[in-house]
């Protein structure tokens, strides 16, 4: 089902992940978050932007364990733990945050 933002249509896969990474922008992110029943706060943006940087550097979306560790290193121990990340993204930080970041589903995520 395509995602509609400001009258523009974006192709997604059957699970709602954006088909074309390069079409992503902040408006698309907000719409993707809405489809997950999430309102984007600064804390959400911090994780989403981190994921986009990680993807642009390594060409993969990190596994949850790797994401948690890397967030802890970059943003501090109070954020680098699964409790904090699951509060932001109840259906899984890797899965849900990746979708909002316009990235493919993390490798190995079912």
């Amino acid at each position: 089902m395509p995602l509609e933002v400001d009258g523009k249509s974006y192709e997604t896969d059957e699970e709602g992940y954006l088909a074309d990474l390069s079409q992503w922008d902040e408006k698309v992110a907000v719409a993707l978050a809405k489809s997950e029943n999430l309102d984007m706060s600064d804390s959400h943006w911090e994780v989403v932007n981190f994921l986009r940087e990680y993807y642009s550097e390594y060409q993969i979306a990190p596994a949850v364990r790797v994401l948690t560790k890397a967030i802890g290193k970059k943003l501090g121990k109070d954020k680098g733990n699964s409790k904090y990340l699951y509060e932001l993204f109840p259906y899984g930080p890797a899965k849900q945050a990746c979708k909002i970041a316009g990235l493919p589903k993390p490798t190995g995520c079912v």
Binding site: E57, Y58, Q59, I60, P62, A63, V66
Partner: peptide, 14 residues
């Protein structure tokens, strides 16, 4: 094609 040579640099994180 996707340049997955960058991904080898993430192996340390894993």
């Amino acid at each position: 094609l996707k340049n997955f040579s960058a991904t080898y640099r993430a192996l340390g994180d894993y």
